[in-house]
Design a protein around this nucleic acid. Sequence first.
DNA 1: AGTCATTCGGACATCTACCT
DNA 2: AGGTAGATGTCCGAATGACT
Length: 205
Amino acid sequence: MMKQKGTKMVSQETIAHHFAKNVDWQKFVNLAHSLGDQLNDAQWRFFKAIVFENSMESFSDGSVRYVGEEGCDLMVKIKNKEYKVEMKYMEGAWYTAGGKSKPRLRNQCKGIILMNSKGTNTHATVPDTYADFLLVVGLRGAAVIDKPTLKQYTTKHGDSIQADIPSDVVDFVFTPNHVKAPTLQKINLRQELNEAVRRTIAQIQ
DNA sequence: AGTCATTCGGACATCTACCT
DNA sequence: AGGTAGATGTCCGAATGACT
């Protein structure tokens, strides 16, 4: 029986290219800006990730599937094969805000907490069960890194595993040059969620 | 001087798996 | 049966550093 080598693993460049081509990042940027800080409060942050992860599926051509499993948020289908991708969102992941000047590419991504827990973390690096690729999404850019490369840049921090990824070892999916100024849309997810919550509560007898 | 950026730890809610 | 470590994701706040 063949070992793992029998299953061909595509390159991070292939994954990045697929995300670049088959996901509408302008829509993502519009969504992220329109959502603003609505879900930034501590108790809503988990939901923010759910919104963004789902948006990958919605804004894709159908080849991206949201699964939300442990260590794997997305399944990406390329040439009839599916690949496991973990997604992290951080506002200023790759580019500084810029303010009055232009956004500037960082030498390395802002530190990402890949896993953390109360008490003491046992992992020294990402576990074998972790997705094969990590998609790091920011407001002004996104990039892909494969697991073997990612492992080179992880450090154990008390109760967490942190990744400090140099910008020149990743493959970019989009950059500030790939998107136009965001179209702000009037959405109020907090209100809709609150209403959904009240409706649900009202069903209880 | 005043803006912009970085850094660090802690905060949030709640589930499952495992332990005694 | 009851307790808790470990897992999930993101940002805030304050203090400090760097730049124009």
